[in-house]
Design a protein around this nucleic acid. Structure first.
Lengths: 212, 212
DNA sequence: GTCTATATCTCGATAGAC
DNA sequence: GTCTATCGAGATATAGAC
């Protein structure tokens, strides 16, 4: 079983949140499930139980600004999972294994809807909105930086940390695509084991491995 | 340098194609760049230099049917790259390396627009259209089957082939997301080297004793 | 600040002339 | 089969009452 759900706001009460945060919550939820283009602002305010005009009160830049803030907020929330899961594990390798297992559990629990909160948006907007593309890039850069430091703290050599975390993020994102399309968790199971093995190998051989 | 471009129709003339194929070509091109939701049928027929009504003549099921045929055609075209690239390499490991390098070259050459032809669509529609989701799943299943046989032909043990190809497809897809968002090829470079190393390891140590 | 009504545009889809 | 005109519904965005 997963250490915790991998939803974004499930553990905390939302009743006390202000209108702006409720809009971002609803936007994050809808865009995680169906992407940016298919998510209309009307659907967002309805889900947020907010008046329509509030969108343009809190986000004068319209849907694009709301999208950018959604990306940054979702990215920051999702990043919190990494130290949370790794901190609850006895060692780095089992922590990595738990992260992928938790992702698979949460995916199944949400009927294959809750995968990466920003991947769909990233692919949709990379060549259509520079503002949104940069927001996604900033989130991925943050994940790489945070993940690297977590790996180093767990015993991985600094020289290996960056390529390892990029490998694992890419594996997670790619597996999410395969799992959602096939409605099977095989891909996450496979890449989770591979990630755990890669980390284990990096812990065994601290010297930077040479490749031809 | 890539063995060949990783575009879908670039090497062949398109002038002789009929209207239906021109529509599919245009649809594949637009959806590869910006996804399914952001691609309107009007933009497709304009790019295909076809009359608007032709869409509903050739695709009575409307946009959804066109999307499904686009996914299947794009998936089959992209699959041809694998034997093409591997066949031009002296061995399996350098073939795998060449595939990822070619993907990175093509991505840069197209201003980070031409990545996976169906990944964006897969994430967008997985929870919105069962027809389109199944089309994506069929493509991924085909890629896994084709890739497995290619790996086995290259010397990988049957017991390792399936998990290896799933690892590599996931790594490729995830790296595409990171590269498009960051407009850097680092992720593809990293996972390409990792994929080559995984294949090399599988060739050196045939796991799971098999009676042949 | 909150909320409603509406303007303007573009979407997918259809009808029907040719 | 090809092509045009147009439909109704939905989109984003704005204006303005309260």
């Amino acid at each position: 079983m997963a250490v915790a759900g991998q939803g974004l706001t499930s553990e905390r009460e939302v009743g006390v949140n202000g209108t702006k945060q409720r809009i971002i919550d609803a936007s994050a939820h809808l865009m995680r499930h169906q992407g940016y283009e298919a998510t209309g602002v009307k659907a967002i305010v309805t889900a947020a139980r907010a008046p329509f005009g509030s969108i343009y009160h809190f986000f004068p830049g319209g849907k694009e600004q709301l999208g950018a803030e959604t990306i940054r907020w979702s990215g920051a929330e999702y990043a919190k999972l990494l130290p949370a899961v790794l901190g609850g594990a006895p060692d780095l390798v089992s922590g990595v294994r738990a992260f992928f297992a938790g992702a698979a559990d949460h995916l199944v629990a949400t009927d294959y809807a809750d995968a990466c909160p920003i991947a769909t948006i990233a692919l949709e907007v990379s060549n259509r909105s520079e503002v949104l593309r940069q927001a996604c890039a900033a989130v991925f850069d943050d994940w790489v930086a945070l993940g690297s430091s977590q790996l180093i703290a767990g015993g991985v050599a600094e020289a290996d940390a960056r390529r390892l975390i990029i490998e694992m993020i890419a594996a997670l994102e790619g597996a999410f695509i395969l799992c959602r399309a096939t409605r099977r968790t095989e891909a996450l199971d496979v890449v989770g084991e591979a990630a755990a093995a890669s980390v284990a190998a990096a812990l065994c051989s601290p010297a930077a491995p040479k490749r031809s």
